[in-house]
């Protein structure tokens, strides 16, 4: 007994280090797992509060660019509106009675990183603003990521610049679809894989979201084809994409809620269970 106690006293530094190291590794591995509740994340009162204070200050430096972006978006929306008017598609039903398939919320980015391999953003909206996990996040220019964790007033977003992200995407002109991934090299360039060889693909083609997931609506802009080559098996294309979004400067984003998501997921789960 005495020897055991002596052993502990002699090696107390090593034992302390080992315990702490194992805790840290466990936290790391757990953070690599998307569908787990995280013990620690920046969506909490202290870190969220500090990031909000910082953003209240730094927001002023980007006002000019923000205005420019809003102007561009207004212009685009106006064009679309006039097109609808020309087509005489004025709604005849009382739109208040129809539940839209997608609902949008706006939020501000209070922390953004893009220099790591698993990047996250923090937003200033949370559970009290009816934000939930798995909502899609886009900006006025294109796709940003998916909500991965929510606290009362803040939420964290798994950016598309994250090696864990895989988002269904397709070619706009031919609807051949694949998965959007990121190879960690450049925050302005993402990759599209699993595009079948028969797809007719050219430089400059537009890539949009595929609508096969319950997270994003179909047709959210992603980017244009920069270059492409066949992968090792010669069956699929590996495409580099210039993102429309500048992921290094995000200020305001929109969150998307899919009102049918629960129904679709339950239905698909039911099919799996039956099998």
């Amino acid at each position: 007994m005495q020897q055991i106690i002596f052993f502990f006293i002699r090696n107390k530094n090593f034992l302390l280090f080992a315990v702490l190291f194992i805790i840290a590794i466990a936290l790391t591995i757990q953070s690599h797992n998307y569908h787990n509740n995280k013990f620690i994340s920046s969506a909490n009162v202290v870190t969220g509060g500090i990031y909000t204070v910082r953003n209240n200050i730094t927001d002023y430096f980007t006002l000019a660019k923000e205005n420019e972006d809003l102007l561009q978006e207004n212009l685009m929306l106006r064009k679309k509106l006039s097109q609808y008017k020309e087509l005489n598609l004025a709604p005849t039903l009382d739109s208040g009675n129809i539940l839209n398939k997608f609902e949008y919320y706006s939020a501000r980015v209070i922390n953004n990183n893009y220099s790591k391999t698993k990047n996250q953003l923090t937003l200033d909206k949370g559970r009290s603003d009816s934000i939930k996990r798995d909502y899609g996040v886009i900006s006025s220019k294109g796709i940003v990521g998916i909500v991965s964790d929510v606290s009362n007033n803040y939420s964290t977003v798994q950016s598309i610049l994250n090696t864990k992200s895989r988002i269904n995407a397709k070619l706009k002109k031919s609807s051949h679809f694949g998965s959007l991934i990121w190879n960690t090299k450049n925050p302005n360039i993402a990759q599209l894989i699993d595009i079948p060889r028969i797809a007719d693909i050219e430089k400059g083609d537009t890539i949009i979201t595929g609508g096969r997931s319950t997270i994003f609506p179909e047709g959210v802009l992603i980017g244009t084809v920069k270059d492409f080559h066949l992968d090792n098996d010669d069956n699929y294309y590996y495409v580099n994409i210039d993102l429309f979004n500048d992921m290094t400067s995000l200020e305001h984003v929109f969150l998307i809620k899919n009102n049918d998501a629960i129904e679709i997921n339950e239905l698909e789960k039911g099919v799996e269970d039956a099998e």
């Binding site: 190291f21 466990a26 936290l27 790391t28 920046s42 909490n44 790591k116």
Partner: peptide, 15 residues
């Protein structure tokens, strides 16, 4: 780590 959302990587390296 809490600020960075990086799990426990800084904690492990620092310890």
């Amino acid at each position: 780590d809490i600020f960075e959302d990086s799990g426990g990587v800084h904690a492990a390296a620092s310890a």
